[in-house]
Design a binder for these strands. Structure first.
Length: 129
DNA sequence: CCTAACGTCCAG
DNA sequence: CTGGACGTTAGG
């Protein structure tokens, strides 16, 4: 036996590249949701990112601040759009009627800037044109 | 502590 | 794709 050391178990480096789902990783970063049911692992990772927000592996102490700045924190109402100016809920929309369950602001008061960011920006252009 | 509201997931 | 529900975050 010329190579008794390596046998059924390949080097860890190979495992990393082999086991890592490049497709999943990219999809998670660019298009976290498309048509993939994703395993609980992906959900777990996403939750970690959202809650933690900071990674222990910080080789760059200075750049860490910049990365933190780009963190996806919760946005607030712009306070300039008509929806924001409406400081009174209609009390007739689904959100108003279902507030305790839906936990969402009145549709009339929903800031235009915060309006469904799930569809990925550029929705205004489609609506405008 | 409680309430309001945003963000994301699931179902229709 | 849109709406509804749930979890989580932010403010009082």
């Amino acid at each position: 036996m010329p190579k008794p050391k390596v046998g059924p178990a390949p080097p860890p480096e190979d495992i990393f590249e082999f086991s890592m789902d490049s497709e999943e990783a990219q999809s998670l970063h660019f298009n976290r949701k498309s048509s993939e049911k994703m395993s609980p692992l992906s959900k777990y990772i996403e939750s970690e990112h959202q809650q933690a927000g900071l990674f222990s592996l910080s080789p760059f102490n200075g750049s860490l601040d910049a990365a933190n700045d780009l963190q996806k924190k919760r946005r607030k109402k712009c306070g300039a759009c008509v929806s924001c100016l409406r400081n009174e809920n209609c009390g007739t929309c689904a959100n108003c009627l279902n507030r305790k369950t839906g936990k969402q602001i009145c549709k009339l008061r929903k800031c235009d800037e915060l309006k469904r960011r799930r569809s990925e920006l550029e929705v205004s252009e489609l609506l405008m044109n």
